[in-house]
Simulated assay, not measured.
Amino acid sequence: MTVSEFDVGPIARALNVHAASYAIGGLQDIRKRLRGYSKRPSSDIFTSQTIRPHWAFHYGGRTELQFNIGLEDIAGEPALRHGVAFSFEPSQSLPSIDVLVPKVGLFNDYLRGHPEAFPDMRMWHYRGRVQSSDYPASPIMTDLVVPGPFVFLGKRQRVAEIDYDVILADFDRLLPLYEYVESGGHESPSVKVPKAAFSFQAGCSTDRPSGTTASLAERVLNISLRHNLMQAALTCRLIAQYGAANVADEHASGSGTKIDVVLQHAAGEFWYYEIKTAHSPRACIRDAIGQIMEYSYWPGAHEASRLIICGEAALDDEGAAYLRQLNERFRLPFAYEQIVLEQ
């Protein structure tokens, strides 16, 4: 089958039938409850109003985080995407994207709070007809939340090997994210996200975006890029000092979050590093302190022997006095380290 001959309609209708034994089969009942409707808006996930030849989204999804399937052209071969998406393209049913903006905020909150929820899924986006490369599940960048782009989280399958159970099982996994977003963040996820116990595994990212081709303005103002550069500089320094077998970045905390950098300082003794891009040490400490304490002390986490906040600014006398008081009065093992980047 060529890309031009592909039609998602039969797949969407088959998913409606197969969904009866999955939680996603009750999507319209969930929407009825969340919206306070007097009756269920539809009996199906996808309807004739939301199915097009090359894509489909759930009934009611135009103004929501939408469950979406669609054609992906991979090197001239058709593949089927499945997952959730925000479509920021204005239309008659979505004259303004303003209704989606707070939902993007909730989407981002959920992914920050559950960074291990979708390790096997990827995100990508379209600006017009230009498709981005794939990247790990992460908060949506602000510059994408404008009229036009389409942002997706999910997977792809070859159209010759469609597995409906895989699609529906992945929809079930995404359902707590949908419920969190569409309930305004007030409803607890209906499915607990599995949390892996802390077990140190050395290793640092090799595909982290580089700043070598970025302009000076991007290197200074792009927070995500800045964080990546600081993380790379820190891991390189720690590896040089302690060896690659003792350093890991984006390491699972054991409580459903990820630690920027973990150093195995001695057998069974770990130091946690949290990187912040604020311009003052006080702002870095303020932003980091809650996160880094959660990494060490939240139920299920592994307690660190040292909690290190990292920023670009040098620690001043007041900041040093504050951390010293936390160390001495509350016996909290805080420290601060400066990371200096070349401009």
Rank of each mutant, 00 (worst) to 15 (best):
N108Q: 14
S199M: 10
A266M: 15
N327G: 11
A19P: 02
F86H: 01
P281Q: 08
D287M: 06
A321G: 13
C204Q: 08
E89H: 15
R129E: 10
F198P: 00
L177N: 03
E161H: 07
S199L: 12
A320T: 12
R219K: 14
P119V: 10
M230E: 04
V191Q: 15
C284M: 08
N246F: 08
R324N: 12
C236N: 10
L238K: 01
E328D: 15
A240R: 14
K32T: 08
L332C: 10
M141F: 07
G211P: 06
F57E: 03
Q157F: 07
F107L: 05
P10I: 10
Q343S: 15
Y295A: 00
W124Y: 10
H227P: 03
Q92A: 15
Q264I: 06
V181W: 00
N228G: 11
I51S: 02
E250D: 13
A85S: 06
Q241Y: 09
E187N: 08
R226I: 08
D29M: 12
G185H: 03
I74M: 10
E179I: 03
P41C: 09
F330E: 13
Y180A: 02
R237T: 10
A283L: 05
G61L: 01
L65Q: 01
H18W: 10
P136M: 04
T257H: 10
R282F: 13
L229T: 04
G184A: 09
S21R: 15
R35C: 13
A304Q: 03
K258V: 05
L106G: 00
Y272E: 03
I74S: 11
V151F: 06
Y273M: 06
D172S: 10
P149E: 03
P149V: 04
S48C: 10
G311Y: 02
L234I: 05
S224H: 13
Y322P: 01
V193D: 07
G311H: 02
T47A: 09
P299N: 07
D29H: 12
K155Q: 14
V84G: 01
G203M: 10
S93Q: 12
V145Y: 02
G128K: 06
A117S: 06
P90Q: 15
D109N: 13
F198Y: 05
T50N: 06
T142Y: 12
Y336L: 05
A314H: 13
D317F: 14
C236R: 14
D44C: 14
A160N: 07
F107I: 05
I45V: 08
G203F: 07
D172P: 04
A335E: 02
R226W: 09
A79T: 03
S48D: 15
L94R: 06
